[in-house]
C-alpha cells in the first residue's frame, strides 16, 4: 500500500534543490480551477440575478450571506472584512476535502497545504492584533508577568501548528483508512461498502474540519484583536 504524495514531474529547480510537481499540486489546481470557474460563472450571472432569489442564485447568496453573518457574529462588526478571506479558505478546504470523492488526493492531506493555511491565519492574527492593540499587542506577550513571555510565545506559535496538523491529520487519516478498506475488499464489494466510510471521512469529517478550521481561525483573530 502506498499512501505517499506521488511526484508527477519536475516543477522547478532552485540551486541544487528540485521541486517536484506532485499529486497535491495537481489536486490543488483542479480545486482552484473548479472554484474559479464557479466564481466566473457567478460573476457573469450576477447582472441577471433577480430580486427574488431562486435555484443557483439562492445557493450563492446563502453561502455568501452565511459566511458574512458568521464572520460578524464570531468576530464582530469591525472584522466583517475577514469574511471574504475565510469564505475563500472555507470553500477551498471544503472542496479539497471532498475532492477525495472523485479519486483525487485531497490537498488538505498534505502538510504543505494545511501549513500554508495555518500561516495565513497566523499572519492575520498578528496583523489584527497589531492593528487593534497597537503597542499593547507586544506587551500582551509579557502578561500577566514578563516571565510568561516564553509560554505566551509558544502558545502563539502553536496556533498555526495545531491548526495545520489537526486538518492534515484528520484528512490523511481518512485517506489512509479508506485506502486500506479499498485494498482489503474484493473488487465486487468496492462499489458499495466504502460508501459509508466516504460519507464519514470525506463528507462529514470534510465539512466538520473545514468548519473547525474556520471557526478556530476567526476565534484566534478575535482573541488577539480585542484590547484587554
Amino acid at each position: 500500500m502506498d499512501f505517499s504524495n506521488k511526484n508527477l514531474g519536475v516543477l522547478f529547480r532552485i540551486g541544487d534543490e528540485t521541486i517536484y510537481f506532485n499529486q497535491t499540486h495537481l489536486s490543488t489546481w483542479i480545486v482552484m480551477g473548479m472554484l474559479l470557474i464557479l466564481a466566473v460563472i457567478v460573476r457573469l450571472a450576477l447582472p441577471r440575478f433577480s430580486a427574488v432569489p431562486r435555484g443557483f442564485q439562492n445557493v450563492v447568496e446563502a453561502l455568501v450571506e452565511v459566511m458574512s453573518n458568521f464572520a460578524k457574529s464570531t468576530m464582530g462588526e469591525r472584522f466583517e472584512g475577514y469574511g471574504g478571506i475565510y469564505f475563500s479558505i472555507f470553500s477551498f478546504i471544503l472542496v479539497s476535502n471532498y475532492s477525495g470523492l472523485v479519486g483525487l488526493r485531497p490537498p488538505t492531506a498534505d502538510l504543505a497545504t494545511t501549513a500554508a493555511l495555518g500561516l495565513i491565519t497566523f499572519a492575520l492574527i498578528q496583523i489584527g492584533g497589531v492593528r487593534e492593540q497597537r503597542g499593547q499587542y507586544l506587551k500582551s506577550f509579557f502578561k500577566p508577568y514578563p516571565i510568561f513571555f516564553p509560554i505566551n510565545l509558544v502558545g502563539e506559535l502553536s496556533k498555526p501548528v495545531s491548526l495545520a496538523f489537526r486538518l492534515f491529520g484528520n484528512m490523511l487519516g481518512g485517506v489512509i483508512i479508506v485506502g486500506l478498506v479499498y485494498q482489503m475488499l474484493p473488487l465486487a464489494l468496492r462499489f458499495l461498502l466504502p460508501d459509508v466510510l466516504h460519507a464519514y471521512f470525506d463528507i462529514f469529517a470534510g465539512a466538520l474540519q473545514a468548519f473547525i478550521f474556520t471557526v478556530l481561525s476567526m476565534t484566534f483573530i478575535r482573541q488577539k484583536s480585542v484590547t484587554d
Binding site: 474559479l36 469574511g83 477551498f92
Partner: peptide
C-alpha cells in the same frame, strides 16, 4: 484563489 474568490464572487 482567495483574492480571486473575493473579487470575483464574495
Amino acid at each position: 484563489l482567495t483574492v480571486a474568490l473575493i473579487f470575483l464572487l464574495y
